[in-house]
Design a protein around this nucleic acid. Structure first.
Lengths: 223, 223
DNA sequence: CTTGTCGAATTGTTCAACGATCCTTACGTT
DNA sequence: AACGTAAGGATCGTTGAACAATTCGACAAG
């Protein structure tokens, strides 16, 4: 039975060194080890990771295209520091992607994933683990967008949230930021679940307006 | 008057050789000089363009991230040949991005750009220049999406349309494909202009369904 | 017809080198 | 004090060469 081995095909394409380097750097950036605005020296990093400068530069190109790094000619690469305008644009995209998502009739499985993310967030909040609240919240919105059932949209959202994480890394207290939205997540899911897409969309718009306002207000990129 | 010099800022950041190489290759791919599925040899292309292999590889990474090239480890880069599944996904994204666009109240300027694209397409059709019809049509949809007023969404759409162009390059007669949509473009613009967003959205959905069906039917990636 | 083996061709990665550009500092001019 | 200039060092941009790793096709063996 040679059946459906083609499904395992993705696993076959291993990754090159440059891609693995990009994975490492992406993790480091997303966890805040490399802070927004910080310069990443080709020499020191290539030496630290034990790869050549050329390979590292290929990795830099990848992350630059994901908007995590800022490539300035002859000056090197910097961890991107989103501007206020960037934040506004990120929320414009969110309104479009999440808005389209909540208007769709959700499958049982997708809904389950969403509800689990909400539950995780509340559980983490109860345990005062605001780091976990943040990641659960991100999982929630990622799951929400996955209602569109489009790999490309999922990928776009992944990048968007990674970029948004940069914003959180320069905020003074990102923890308290998520708190007001735990309840709203529940309500939003309720509207979706009960088949009222237009109400859900309207509620979401207000949700995002609120979040955006809070975020912009607390965000000072020129700290 | 130091006013609004910040607008010229992008022009300040010149481009590296790798980026310029990427521009050239992108043009060549989009015009069909390099055909989908074709392998791009590092040696021959780097020699032909007079750049080193390392620099060319950086350019390849950029285009790979735009989904124009397919990087297969140890086998080289190939001009991407979208699958039928890819086409379906591209239309999912279009429905989301264009759908959100037509629901927005358009500015006078944006509307003018859109109408001009429609007019250009009709003019080209009258002159039997189906190449020009295709590009005008693409301009139309790009302008439509720009109603979202989001740089990131514009960029996403640009990449999406570049990818769609790959699909057209493997079709037998992409010319006749655009013809039925000239009239629909007019109608759609009319609905937007007269401030009936929901009707426009509904009409657009039908529009995209129709286009997708035609395209899938005529598309045979395994030629 | 299937499987194993060999060799050519191409990619993956590294390394060293040099010019180009930027940043800093210092110095002099107005 | 503000500005222009010059020198120096650091880092990036790009190149060319080299070698290892991998793929692919051809051909021999079973």
């Amino acid at each position: 039975m040679v059946a459906d081995l083609s499904q395992d095909r993705p696993r076959l394409g291993r990754s090159s060194t440059a891609e693995r380097v990009a994975d490492i750097l992406r993790d480091r950036i997303s966890e805040g080890f490399f802070q927004p605005g910080q310069r990443l020296s080709e020499e020191s990093i290539s030496e630290a990771l034990g790869v050549s400068r050329n390979t590292l530069r290929e990795a830099f190109r990848l992350l630059g295209h994901e908007r995590l790094l800022d490539h300035r000619l002859n000056r090197g690469v910097f961890v991107r520091l989103p501007s206020v305008e960037d934040v506004l644009d990120l929320y414009r995209v969110r309104r479009v992607l999440e808005g389209a998502a909540v208007r769709r009739k959700p499958s049982k499985e997708a809904l389950a994933v969403i509800k689990e993310a909400v539950a995780d967030a509340r559980r983490a909040a109860a345990g005062d683990d605001w780091q976990a609240v943040g990641t659960a919240n991100i999982r929630f919105h990622q799951a929400l967008v996955s209602l569109n059932e489009s790999p490309r949209i999922d990928e776009t959202m992944r990048q968007l949230l990674a970029e948004l994480r940069l914003v959180f890394h320069v905020m003074e207290n990102p923890r308290a930021f998520h708190e007001p939205f735990l309840e709203r997540n529940r309500i939003l899911v309720g509207l979706i679940e009960s088949g009222r897409p237009e109400e859900a969309a309207a509620y979401l718009d207000d949700y995002l307006d609120h979040a955006e306002r809070l975020l912009i207000h607390a965000y000072e990129p020129n700290r």
